[in-house]
């Protein structure tokens, strides 16, 4: 198992390298010109002289290869450069905002699992009856609802009309409710459907039939045999949800003025702040890969078949 984890972690190094090259090239091969953006933000007319001055200041007048290796050399020492716009160290700023995003994503994950599981189980146990229709309908609507729209609707209802919840910002525990719900709805709906399908599959498994023949109580059949086995695909999906939640945070954080890393990334995109975008994308890649690794480890731990079969080979 340790070898398996080490292997996966080692694989992260070439992956991050490839991503860094791709991101570096994609940002620079387009029409984007950070010097023009800097002058626009500073309200300085973009004359040739001003553009040349800013390009020199930001190091943009050097060949691309030199720029990349210079950046890589410093990145290996955990120095991801200074923001073109603020002049502040990029990594410091991202690490400053990251806990807020992880907090939002964490609460969203709790909602996804906390509501998705009972809804999925309920739907499977009452298959083709109203609870099933209700949860399937909800899942259908939820998957098709854009998070920013849902965010504004929630704000309209709970902040403007009812005055129950604060509309934006971060502070008390109440502030996280609406952003977390807007962010998690899609994952929640996918999760509900996943659990339902998985439960229904397990209910037809031979082990379940034998348990019933043995006269095991129905609640034990469902709890010990069906539910436990149905959870494995759900754990696998957590890794996927992590990506959805971190990606979705980019939109939701803007709607709710949530001071997270996603909102910082959006402003960096608008301002052509390349160092911030590079570091953000690498950070997200690493987070995504590590969370999937954790999920794989968790699965292997939960499922003896993986541990003794496939896991042993690794």
């Amino acid at each position: 198992m340790i070898r398996f984890i080490l292997n996966r972690l080692l694989l992260l190094i070439p992956l991050l390298l490839v991503v860094s090259v791709l991101v570096f090239l994609l940002l620079r091969l387009g029409e984007n010109d950070p010097a023009m953006s800097y002058l626009r933000l500073s309200r300085i007319p973009p004359s040739e002289q001003a553009l040349a001055e800013v390009r020199e200041q930001l190091g943009l007048n050097r060949p691309l290869v030199v720029q990349y290796f210079d950046w890589l050399g410093r990145a290996l020492r955990m120095d991801f450069g200074l923001s073109y716009v603020t002049g502040a160290p990029v990594l410091d700023r991202l690490l400053y905002y990251l806990p807020n995003t992880l907090y939002l994503a964490g609460v969203s994950m709790l909602i996804t699992l906390g509501l998705g599981l009972p809804l999925g189980v309920w739907s499977a146990l009452r298959k083709d009856r109203w609870p099933d229709h209700f949860s399937r309908g909800l899942a259908f609507i939820g998957v098709s609802t854009p998070s920013f729209w849902l965010g504004f609707m929630l704000v309209f209802l709970f902040s403007i009309k009812l005055g129950w919840l604060p509309p934006l910002g971060m502070g008390s525990p109440l502030h996280v409710i609406m952003p977390a719900f807007s962010l998690s709805l899609m994952s929640l709906c996918i999760n509900t459907r996943l659990i339902r399908t998985s439960m229904l599959e397990q209910m037809n498994a031979r082990s379940v039939l034998y348990a019933r023949i043995r006269g095991v109580l129905e609640k034990w059949v469902i709890g010990r045999h069906v539910l436990r086995n149905s959870l494995i695909p759900v754990v696998t999906a957590i890794g996927m949800h992590m990506g959805e939640l971190l990606g979705g945070a980019v939109v939701v954080e803007n709607v709710f003025a949530w001071p997270g890393v996603g909102r910082y990334a959006v402003s960096a995109i608008y301002n052509r702040d390349f160092p911030v975008m590079q570091c953000f994308l690498l950070m997200m890649t690493a987070l995504f890969v590590v969370s999937n690794l954790l999920v794989d480890v968790l699965c292997a731990w939960l499922d003896p078949r993986l541990r003794y079969g496939k896991g042993a080979e690794l």
Partner: peptide, 18 residues
């Protein structure tokens, strides 16, 4: 001075007295 990037969110903040 609160940081609110989105104009719609600003309108909401105004209407709710934030």
């Amino acid at each position: 001075i609160k940081v609110i990037p989105d104009p719609n969110s600003r309108a909401v903040a105004f209407e709710t007295g934030e």
